[in-house]
Each structure stands twice: as structure tokens, then as C-alpha cells.
């Protein structure tokens, strides 16, 4: 009887890792995402703690980034505005919004503005991995 060995979801077909930019003002959420994603061999290329820094870091690494996780509520520049900037830089950017419950209207706005999906906190490991994998492997 053969047992199916699952490939880590952070790996591409060529064996290299999908590269993720994390944008979140909470160092706790950054740490959670880092732990969940690196456990499946995603590569965290960088992290930013507000929208302005997130857009700058996106521009800096845009040729390498496969997906961005973007918090909706952040100081300086919120996630929706940051998303609009990122989509201007690269209309094909793959961005997943991270939201607390109670922000449904903002999530809808983000999906209209080009976000590919969203994840509601508290972060569930399996949900994070399956949604991000579904977006990067499209």
C-alpha cells in the first residue's frame, strides 16, 4: 500500500518557494503568518507594518513577490489604499486581505479593487494555507 506524500504548499513545481510579502501593523499577526507559511516552505521575502511601507516594499521586490497578505486596518495608509497603489504598480498582483470580522464592507471594496481573496481573523492555519496556495497556484 503506498502512502501519498504531500508536497509542501509553499513550493512551486520547480522546487523553489513562493515568495510572500506580509503587510500588517500587528507584530503578533506578522509572527503568526510567518509561522504558518514557513511551516509549508513559503519564503517570507519581507514584512511591513503599514500601508505606506507595504507599497514601498512591494515596489522594491515586485519582480520576486508571488503574493501579498495585506491587513485592512492599519495606521498611516490603510489596506484598501495600499491595495489600490499595488494594483497600479502591477495590475496582475496577487493580494489577499486579512481582516477582523465586522469589516465586511471593506472586504467587498477590496475584492472590487482587485484583491484575490480574504482571510478573517483569528487565523486558522489550514484556511491560511489553502487560500494562499489557491491564489498563488492559479
Amino acid at each position: 500500500m503506498s502512502e501519498e506524500v504531500k508536497e509542501p504548499r509553499g513550493l512551486k513545481l520547480d522546487g523553489s518557494s513562493y515568495k510572500v510579502l506580509i503587510v500588517d501593523d500587528s507584530i503578533f499577526v506578522q509572527k503568526q503568518l510567518r509561522q504558518i507559511l514557513t511551516s509549508e516552505q513559503f519564503d517570507i521575502i519581507d514584512a511591513a507594518s503599514d500601508g505606506t511601507e507595504g507599497v514601498e516594499k512591494y515596489k522594491q521586490h515586485q519582480n520576486e513577490i508571488d503574493v501579498v497578505t495585506l491587513d485592512i486596518t492599519m495606521p498611516n495608509m490603510d489596506g484598501i489604499t495600499a491595495l489600490e497603489h499595488i494594483m497600479k504598480v502591477n495590475p496582475k498582483a496577487k493580494v489577499i486581505m486579512i481582516s477582523a470580522l465586522g469589516k465586511e464592507e471593506l472586504v467587498k471594496q477590496a475584492l472590487v479593487a482587485g484583491a484575490k481573496n480574504y482571510i478573517v481573523k483569528p487565523l486558522d492555519r489550514e484556511k491560511v494555507l489553502s487560500r494562499i496556495h489557491a491564489v498563488v497556484s492559479r
Binding site: S26, I27, F28, V29, K31, A100, L101, G102, K103, E104, K121, P122
Partner: peptide, 21 residues
């Protein structure tokens, strides 16, 4: 420290977010 505060802040955010809904 900064991480315990960030964790409690996030707990507060999640609870208030759900209650607001």
C-alpha cells in the same frame, strides 16, 4: 513586552470585531 501587548491588542480586536457585527 511588545509581543504580549500586540497579542492582547489582537485579542481585543477580534472580540470587538465580532461583537460589532
Amino acid at each position: 513586552d511588545e509581543m504580549t501587548n500586540a497579542t492582547l491588542t489582537e485579542l481585543g480586536n477580534m472580540i470587538s470585531g465580532r461583537a460589532v457585527t
